[in-house]
């Protein structure tokens, strides 16, 4: 197995994606956009897992199986998240997180 692209390149892409996702999750005010940021975070993890698997333990599939589990969980999480966003849109007509402020103190 002669890889021409070094592992660090994959990790840099992963780190970049993670940073963009974290920025999106923390800075955006729209709940759907925050959810998209979270999906980016999970995809960064998947790149890491698959790249590590290929370069560190190529004879095993642990990392790839882990990545498939992450995909499934991400789908479940998005389903629940969107359901919650829809129910809050129905009761308030907004998905702007700054306007969702009944609970405080």
């Amino acid at each position: 197995m002669s890889a021409t692209i070094p592992l660090s390149w994959f990790l840099l892409v992963g780190a970049g994606l993670f940073s963009i996702g974290l920025y999106g999750a923390l800075a955006r005010r729209n709940a759907v956009a925050v959810l998209m940021g979270i999906e980016l975070l999970l995809n960064a993890v998947n790149i890491n897992l698959v790249a590590f698997n290929r370069y560190i333990v190529p004879q095993q599939v642990t990392g790839q199986v882990f990545a498939i589990f992450v995909l499934a969980i991400a789908a479940a999480e998005a389903a629940v998240g969107l359901a919650l966003i829809i129910s809050i849109y129905r009761s308030r007509d907004t998905v702007n997180l700054e306007d969702i402020d009944l609970l405080k103190g």
């Binding site: 709940a31 998240g81 009944l102």
Partner: peptide, 11 residues
């Protein structure tokens, strides 16, 4: 209030 609690917890 329940909606809001859930969305905050979720995000």
């Amino acid at each position: 209030r329940s909606n809001e609690a859930a969305i905050k917890y979720f995000l």
